[in-house]
Simulated scan of single mutants.
Amino acid sequence: MTTANTTGTAALTTGARAEATIDLGALRDNLAALRERVAGPELMAVVKADAYGHGAVRCAREAVAAGARWLGTATPEEALALRAAGIGPDRARILCWLWTPGGPWQEALRQRIDVSVSGRWALAELLAAVRETGVSARVHLKVDTGLGRNGCQPHDWPDLVDEALRAQAEGLLEVVGLWSHFAAADEPGHPSIQAQLDSFAAALAFAEGAGVRPEVRHLANSPATLTLPQSHYDLVRPGLAMYGLSPVPDLGGPADYGLRPVMSLTARLALVKSAPGGHGVSYGHHYTTPGPTTLGLVPVGYADGVPRHASNTGPVQIGGKWYRVAGRVAMDQFVVDLGGDTPGVGTEVLLFGSGEHGEPTAEDWGRACGTISYEIITRIGSRVPRRYVGGVTA
């Protein structure tokens, strides 16, 4: 069971040490807002990294129920887990893009998973799996338009396209996608954005001139989905935005784009005690009480995904009031200086939520830790239970 609280956010399950509440209704609303923003192109719900810490299977099912026909994963294991959970090819296409030599190509083919190919080694391994299984492949060729990470360099692009077309002529595969990824779409006006748009257009022109007839061309991640309509092509790939966080916080928060954060993280005070002035707190005594005060113990730490960089900076809300982490975040716990306040043991501590009721957000935690909201939500550990509310799927 759950109990009521005063913030308007979902309250902790009775007896829980900590809990991440996942609002699947907000997830569906975010998908609807993104679909309205992009109009024509299809939407790929990116559920890599356990759906950015929200739970891949539940979020994928919810996204498909909301009309998403594409799901995006990084690793083949992520893609295969979705198929094993019953999300079949009749319900959604799944694209997997981060392959390493010796990967489970054969199983991916049998499960009708679309695969990304960035180099000739990958194409060779894929074709060997096709010949072994007798199952033709659905391939998305990825070009490096300037990110300098995965993807085929432009000078190697003609050879990769030519080899893929030869394999297609033999009936071994179908090139169904051409794609790339932005380096700095979250920095509007960055010179790399136009350079990548131009590079992608050139790569498309070459491939299509050579005879590729892709089902989808895709380039736009979350920030490009929100701010670069010229990058939308046939498919957009929102990740962070799907989970209700702004990928361009300097331009606007979630509400400015019709989004609502999906995850809130709550714990429960395990101890409240008085302490004198000059008392060291946590490892290394990097915080010393400035005077007589009360200290509250929060039973989550870096093993749960609370960044150690949140030491002396991370914000929490207790009883409607903000406090900061006092001293170092430890593996299983951290302390807040309550300044003489005396909330009872068991009182809820809201680490982050939607911000609609004055609580800290994942963006606040990112700024406090010198990182980004992506890292805050994806690092919440497996020993923090996820509780799903507002869902339409089991």
Rank of each mutant, 00 (worst) to 15 (best):
N5A: 03
T7M: 06
R17I: 10
A18V: 08
T21I: 15
D29M: 11
N30Q: 05
N30E: 06
E36H: 11
E42R: 07
L43G: 01
M44C: 14
A45F: 06
V46E: 13
V46I: 13
G53D: 01
R61V: 06
G67P: 11
R69E: 14
E77D: 07
L80C: 12
A81F: 00
A85F: 05
G88Y: 04
L95R: 04
G102K: 09
Q106T: 13
R110H: 07
Q111F: 00
V115W: 15
R120F: 03
R120I: 07
L123H: 00
T133Y: 09
G134N: 04
V139R: 09
V143W: 04
W157C: 05
W157S: 03
A167D: 10
E170F: 01
E174G: 13
V175P: 05
V175A: 13
H181A: 11
P188Y: 12
G189A: 03
A201C: 06
A203R: 07
A207H: 05
L226P: 00
S231D: 06
V236Y: 13
A255H: 15
A255K: 13
L259R: 11
L265N: 00
T266K: 15
L271F: 06
A275Q: 14
H285D: 14
H286W: 11
P290G: 08
T293D: 01
G305H: 13
T313Y: 13
V316K: 03
Q317M: 15
V336E: 05
D337I: 01
D337N: 15
D341I: 11
E348A: 15
E363D: 15
R367M: 13
A368D: 15
G391L: 12
V392T: 11
